[in-house]
């Protein structure tokens, strides 16, 4: 059923092709998550704001980016970006300028992940004990110092499990970037399958690689969470 030599690395083997796709998937998802973290932090701040206007802005963002299909959002950025950049390029006499697929993909998945990351950050922020922030105020720490030394480290620790979920979600969403032609794993599987007409082989291979990526990510986050939980763990024998 599956000719394994086709998955190999030798002549006529597509192994390297697929692995390159897997690497691209990881890279584009990582960039997407960074973009999402920045935007997500801003959206979380908006949602926690005392001003109603900001809260509405934040809520609107999450409603749109969690309610509208991811594919549609990627089309928006791809075709919309295409139009904008093409027009921009025309100003300089450069016709046919199109947005790099990587950027479209990273921004698209990034903006989507931002709405989930915002919820994670918001929950983590509210979980930071008010008493600890008060102690920092009582010590004379300025707002910036409190934020940097007390709030950010705590929010980061509490966010880890939620961010693990967002990572997994984004890893799978990244398959949709294939519609832009970016050479990530889905696209590579598609090209290999179309080229050899061995659709089953290559979609299974691609699927297996995705499973490897998600399983490894699961492990990595598990390790990170355990390390961070060291300070949460209950007392080791009360004195």
């Amino acid at each position: 059923m599956i000719d394994f030599s086709l998955l190999g690395f030798g002549q006529g083997g597509w192994g390297a092709w697929l692995l390159a796709g897997a690497v691209m998937t990881l890279v584009v998802t990582l960039c997407a998550l960074f973009i999402g973290a920045v935007v997500g932090a801003l959206v979380a701040a908006a949602k926690l704001s005392k001003r109603r206007l900001w809260r509405v802005v934040g809520d609107t963002y999450t409603t749109i980016f969690r309610g509208v299909p991811e594919l549609l959002i990627i089309y928006l950025i791809y075709f919309g970006g295409s139009g904008a950049i093409g027009a921009f390029g025309n100003l300089f006499g450069n016709k046919g300028l199109s947005p790099p697929a990587f950027l479209v993909g990273a921004v698209g998945v990034g903006l989507i992940s931002a709405s989930y990351q915002a919820e994670v950050f918001r929950g983590s922020f509210m979980a930071v004990a008010a008493g600890e922030i008060e102690a920092a105020r009582a010590l004379g720490m300025s707002r910036l110092l409190r934020f940097r030394r007390i709030i950010v480290p705590q929010v980061w620790r509490f966010s880890l499990p939620g961010l693990g979920n967002v990572w997994q979600l984004s890893l799978k969403d990244s398959a949709l970037i294939s519609v832009t032609g970016l050479a990530e794993l889905m696209r590579q599987s598609q090209v290999a399958a179309g080229s050899t007409h061995l659709y089953f082989t290559f979609y299974v291979a691609g699927g297996v690689l995705y499973l490897v990526l998600t399983a490894l990510s699961d492990r990595a986050f598990g390790v990170a969470e355990r390390r961070v939980a060291r300070s949460f763990r209950g007392s080791l024998g009360r004195g």
Binding site: A129, G131, E132, E134, A135, A136, R137, A138, L139, G140, M141, S142, I150, P153, Q154, R157, S231, F232
Partner: peptide, 19 residues
């Protein structure tokens, strides 16, 4: 902030930084 740093406060719930 400066005057707060000259006053030491101890809270009912300790409020130590858990991280």
């Amino acid at each position: 902030d400066r005057i707060r740093s000259e006053l030491g406060m101890v809270f009912q719930n300790f409020n130590l930084w858990s991280h």
